[in-house]
Amino acid sequence: MNNITKTFGSKVVFRNLNIEIEQGKFITIVGKSGIGKSTLLGIIGSFEKVSDGKIIFEDREIKKPDKNRIMIFQSFDQLMPWKTVRENIEFPLKHLDIEGLDIENILIELDLKDVENHYPYQLSGGMKQRVAIGRSIITKPRMLLMDEPFGSLDVGTRYNLQRLLMHVWDAYKMTVVFVTHDVNEAVVLGNDIWILNENEILQIANPIMKPRDISDVNFQIFVRELVQKIK
């Protein structure tokens, strides 16, 4: 992203921001609330228009959302209530008319086989987010953009979904940009952790080896360092 400037009325959120996202990375973005994490993610996905600057994706300038950069939201209403689990996951394939991943494998890997014919209202929050992940990976996108997808889930479910997401990322080799307000989550998931402060992005490589254990002393020291850098 070159020289991105984003304003809301007279408020400048970003000024001349330059960032580069490397293919295949898992990047987590943290920062205090209201700093513009979701806005930044929206800009990467072209859901938010920039006031100035260019977004280049694989040598092409892009202006509209497309199937290469799929967004996963926090809110549960991203699923279609009138479609079953299976139909929700298959939805993009039908509309894009492309060959995607095998739906059976996805249902099994995301542990949704038993509920494939359920409607969203019959699912728990964690299951709904698993369906959203299933739908987003079935088209084999280059990049997943996740806006606090586990934000409304309880600790246990969140832990399980973090493991699952790591597995999906390993298996399908997609670039992931993951926004969270939880620094622990950022360190569990990210190769790189970006701290978003007022008009500055600190990019920090994650030194903790996988599998990352929250109770590990080094993990906690690193988290403390990061927290001190959030302004």
Partner: peptide
Amino acid sequence: FPKTLSKVGDNYEM
């Protein structure tokens, strides 16, 4: 209408 649903449509170039 949930904006997220409309955005899902945009994401799949509808």
